[in-house]
């Protein structure tokens, strides 16, 4: 881990710049979120305090400071998607998964999240499944998507 992170740092004139890539990498290594150790590791690798790394991570939506599911489903509920049924799509996922936005299924498999505009406004609703965009998602598509993740 430490070596990997220090490799990332080589790309930058100042190793501190590697904090974001380092946290991203650490999050992947730790199963989608950043436990205490992750901050200690990144801190050690880049000669920063764990507190500093936590402070940076907590600023960005893509870093999770609490345990998340193995998969994430992120539904854009900003205006453009909202105008064409994003709320229905979100609710479809809530029903299908039996959780509210921001929660993780009891089995720890899937985390559902509402997110701000993902930049796919002409093909609403945009749903990022494990960080890959699905375009023009309708409530009808929801069971299949969940099926796929569960399967």
């Amino acid at each position: 881990m430490i070596e990997e992170i220090q490799k990332l740092a080589k790309e930058y004139p100042s190793s501190k710049s590697a904090v974001l890539p380092a946290l991203r990498y650490a999050q992947e290594q730790h199963g989608g979120w950043l436990p205490r150790e992750a901050f200690e590791e990144v801190g050690e690798a880049l000669d920063l305090t764990p507190a500093y790394c936590m402070s940076v991570a907590s600023f960005y939506d893509m870093f999770q400071l609490e345990r998340t599911g193995e998969h994430t489903v992120e539904v854009c509920t900003n205006v453009c998607c909202g105008l064409l049924g994003a709320q229905a799509v979100l609710e479809a996922f809530e029903r299908e998964l039996g959780v509210h936005a921001g929660e993780t299924t009891a089995d720890g498999a899937i985390t559902l999240r509402a997110v701000e505009c993902l930049g796919g406004c002409s093909t609403p609703t945009i749903v990022a499944v494990d960080h890959r965009y699905r375009q023009s998602v309708t409530p009808a598509d929801v069971p299949a998507i969940v099926e796929q993740l569960r399967g």
Binding site: R36, T49, M54, S55, F59
Partner: peptide, 26 residues
Amino acid sequence: ESVSEDGQLVAKNRGAMSVISTFEDE
């Protein structure tokens, strides 16, 4: 951060949810 340079007292979260914090429970 820039006087005692201990990097232990930091801001956490963003916007209206921002708070001052130490690392975990330390």
